[in-house]
Design a protein around this nucleic acid. Structure first.
Lengths: 249, 249
DNA sequence: GAGTGGTCTAGACCACCAA
DNA sequence: TGGTGGTCTAGACCACTCC
């Protein structure tokens, strides 16, 4: 190990960070409450005597921190407390949201037939090209779309699945209808910027900060379901194991 | 559940996304290899016949996806494969890096005495104001600073700790020197934009995308260590449980 | 139709890095 | 010392939302 590294010179704080600070304080102090709308970019620029792009940089900062979110072309709003989400547990998103005091709504985007390729085949541990069923959906919390999900099912492992329409939640449906009780065996997650299909489904700007989660579910010794979830970054935090909840204390 | 939502109109793809695509292809095809440097913002702008800010937007996109990273005022570089990190296991970062074929280096930033307040007191389950020891460090992978860590220790639970200098790795030191074998009981993580102390320690621009991780460690039925880690977003992915490794397949 | 964010331009000056 | 990214300005036009 090295000894202490040299301290950096103190520099003047950039303007956009000063603006970030001003806005963060207005939010923290409750001047703008949860769900409240911030002034428009142009209003803030005029008020603070700066250019619009500088204000945007500050807003982008707060968005990346999860303090605020954008509603496309409608404005910036203060984010509610993050959903606490444990991907190792088998809780359905549509049940998680109301369990933490929010209003949940689901949007079903339809079913597709596809085939296992690349990393999907690897995760299923099946042949390349094996038939898969894909169910797509969006989770809505308090009227805001926060998660786009793709659920891949190994067709040959769930005979008769295609004879029925989609029913939420998927896990319960598999158990009740097909006698299959899946078990979560692992997940993987990384931050990313969203674009393409997820941003279209979530109705947000391409480039919005997000969290990508992959989950693997097993039954009878083999993988029968792989989920890919794209969350808006400010909407959740991942909590695994024993962790005190600051909102209960 | 709602029926299928109406498809959005196809829109013209914004210029910065087209540029993102061009650069992503150059990276994916190996035209610019791992660790390779991208042309400068001005060069790209000239080559593509656009303004510098538009190029920056594309580069910011790729940075948020983790495909590239910035070295402050030195340029943009192609990111290596993400470190696979399981926070539920008790692997020290300085051992994790070499175990995945990279060169690790540690920078020790020193020790401070502090007190448990707010969420720290909550996580320790101790009185507000209880004395804590704070050890600060930075992890370097292949010459790049990728993680800034704060390790809080409950002073009264580790008698004599202050009589010795810091020794890495902390977990092994606690066991060998004090007979304390800690146990990871939970972690929490969320994406965020870094600024302040973490960005200074990591020598990156304020606003760089990052991942914040808190870990709690127990011994003898009580929490004795809380870690706060700030990772550069592109440097890792979190993998918990059984998950096939695409690099081994 | 007024207002919003989304995109884009064409500059500027600065601090910092490498040579 | 020349080139880099970091910051900032002052506009522009557009698609879209809400009224």
């Amino acid at each position: 190990m090295h000894p202490v590294s040299p301290e950096r010179e103190a520099r003047e704080v950039p303007l956009f960070l000063q603006i970030r600070e001003i806005l963060a304080q207005r939010i923290g102090s409750g001047t703008i409450g949860i769900g409240g709308r911030l002034p428009s970019e142009r209003e803030l620029a005029a008020e603070l005597g700066t250019a619009r792009m500088t204000v945007r940089e500050a807003l982008r900062m707060l968005e990346g921190e999860g303090l605020i979110y954008r509603a496309e072309r409608r404005g910036y709003f203060v984010s509610p407390a993050r959903l606490r989400y444990d991907p190792t547990r088998h809780v359905n998103v549509m049940r998680l949201i109301p369990s933490q005091g929010h209003v949940a709504e689901g949007i079903y985007l339809g079913r597709q037939l596809t085939r296992a390729t690349g990393s999907l085949a690897l995760m299923f541990g099946c042949q390349e090209g094996a038939p898969l069923i894909l169910e797509r959906s969006v989770a809505v919390m308090n009227g805001r779309r926060i998660e786009y999900g793709e659920h891949f099912l190994l067709e040959e492992a769930i005979p008769g699945y295609l004879d029925f329409p989609y029913e939420s939640p998927l896990t319960q449906t598999l158990e009740r209808r097909h006698g299959i009780r899946t078990k979560m065996i692992g997940f993987r997650t990384r931050p990313t910027n969203l674009f393409g299909i997820p941003t279209e489904a979530l109705e947000v700007r391409a480039g919005s900060p997000g969290l990508y989660i992959t989950r693997i579910k097993q039954h009878g010794g083999r993988v029968i379901e792989v989920d890919r979830e794209y969350w808006l970054s400010d909407a959740l935090e991942i909590v695994v194991g024993q962790f005190p909840n600051p909102h209960e204390a």
